[in-house]
Design a protein around this nucleic acid. Structure first.
Lengths: 216, 216
DNA sequence: ACCTGAACACCGTTCAAGT
DNA sequence: ACCTGAACACCGTTCAAGT
């Protein structure tokens, strides 16, 4: 294990760390309720701090959004680890994809907004590295069990969950769990029996990290 | 054919119609270049009209975006009709999906933004109705040829193209045509050979229209 | 080192005055 | 009927003054 030349060397003062938490939680709740266009003033008020404090902790509104995103990715890493212990090879991956999609469908907009900006900060990268490590094992294990085609990697799986969530979103208010339909279809496409040669190769972790960095 | 009780009864005055066109074209170009957060002032300036004129023609910025969206959907209808005439049953659908995805990948953000608002206006609905009519024939024809599973409908296809575009988008700057990879996988899932029972049923046109209307 | 709220620049939208 | 640009309300961000 090589530590990244981290910049979070000095921990925050106790009150600052507390405010950070309050802001992230208040923002997560507000965004979940009303979408991403709640004002930072409203968020600061809900968290019980001044507007300036928000911008001292997060250089921009998008960095605050990214912080919530990191929390969610970490949650998914926990879920993935749990599933690896408790489930059979094929079941684990299927369940992970369900959990991932449900999360993305729940917080409308949050994940769309993150694609475009401020993913440069290293917390985002580290959270994804951890998730991908576990997910990589999960995918390989499902492949060894013959339940998933060999030519896909963990990043493909991540992208596909995003795709299923996006596909289902327009109809979601009318057909609440329509994402299950599209997950079923993608799962059919993931089976070795269905496999036809895919364009390209599974994205590498290096490519993924570059993609995160390039999001201007 | 029953005409919808249209509201676009009275046509616009010549100069107004011209300004409308100028605004849509200027906005399309500006959005394609710099994303959706170019200001309405900038757009009005590019179109060579006052800011007030923009808001006289489009009650809100989102309505302007929706107008561009309608243009694109109409283009896709033309493409679909052409493909129906010129291609074999299976090829037509595949090519249509490619065209649809390429368009969504090209104008980043445009299609994400439209899902959420101002789709109530009847132009959006009519454009989709026309597209779905042609796409419905295309899907059935591919199904009769045994190239596509029977339990999907045209709206499923539309949603799946959105999903593929969304899945590919994060990696797009690093792996430019990565959407082809995910389209290949979805195509594998669409083949009758791969078919396992899907959750739910193909969305009906009535459900789709309700979804458009409910987007508050 | 951190907190705060007033101040700033900017953007979507409105409207009174013009043709 | 339509066009225009000044005016308004609001939001993200900064910063001087405080602890």
């Amino acid at each position: 294990m090589i530590l990244p030349m981290a910049q979070t060397i000095r921990p925050l003062r106790a009150d600052a760390e507390r405010n950070r938490r309050l802001l992230i939680d208040a923002a997560a709740e507000a965004f979940a309720q009303h979408g991403l266009d709640v004002s930072v003033g409203e968020i600061a008020r809900r968290a019980g701090v001044g507007r300036g404090t928000l911008f001292r902790r997060f250089p921009t509104k998008e960095h605050l959004i990214a912080a919530i995103f990191v929390d969610r990715v970490s949650d998914m890493t926990d879920t993935a680890r749990l599933l690896m212990e408790e489930e059979e090879a094929g079941d684990a991956l299927g369940r992970f994809m369900r959990a991932m999609i449900e999360m993305q469908v729940k917080d409308r907009g949050l994940f769309e907004a993150v694609g475009h900006s401020a993913l440069t900060d290293p917390d985002v990268l580290r959270a994804h590295d951890e998730l991908l490590a576990t997910l990589g094992k999960m995918v390989r294990s499902a492949q060894r069990a013959g339940e998933v085609r060999d030519d896909v990697g963990p990043i493909d799986i991540l992208m596909l969950t995003k795709g299923v969530a996006a596909a289902a979103e327009p109809m979601q208010c009318v057909v609440p769990r329509s994402w299950e339909r599209y997950l079923d279809l993608v799962t059919d496409g993931l089976r070795p029996a269905a496999a036809t040669k895919l364009c390209g190769r599974p994205p590498s972790r290096a490519q993924f990290e570059k993609a995160l960095r390039d999001a201007s």
